[in-house]
């Protein structure tokens, strides 16, 4: 499975969410097919709540990993 990493550290919420949603929308079919996995690197703490919730509402699985001063949020298809 291909992992696409998107570094959006330095952006604020809700821009962070919007960028993330835009990427998820663009890769929706691939994600659902299990072909790719999106890895967002973020440092906006609010986005660690909003990205997983939005992704879950859209039917995706989410995993959040806390790193040194930033977060790694992975979004992947549930199939």
């Amino acid at each position: 499975m291909e992992t696409i990493e998107i570094d959006i550290r330095g952006q604020l919420c809700p821009a962070t969410l919007l960028v993330a949603l835009k990427e998820i929308n663009a890769r929706g079919a691939q994600l659902r097919a299990g072909a790719v996995k999106l890895r967002f690197l973020i440092d906006n703490r609010d986005a660690t709540g909003t990205i997983p919730e939005s992704a879950a509402n859209m039917g995706y699985g989410v995993a959040v990993d806390r790193q040194e001063g930033w977060y790694r949020v992975e979004v992947f298809g549930r199939q």
Binding site: P14, A15, L18, L21, K22, I24, N25, G28, S54, N57, M58, G59
Partner: peptide, 22 residues
């Protein structure tokens, strides 16, 4: 330029599909 409405409406399409499946 960012077109948040477009982004969010695209997301809604996915949310709705997911709801339907659920």
């Amino acid at each position: 330029e960012l077109d948040p409405i477009g982004i969010i409406s695209d997301s809604f399409v996915q949310v709705l599909r997911h709801l339907k499946e659920t």
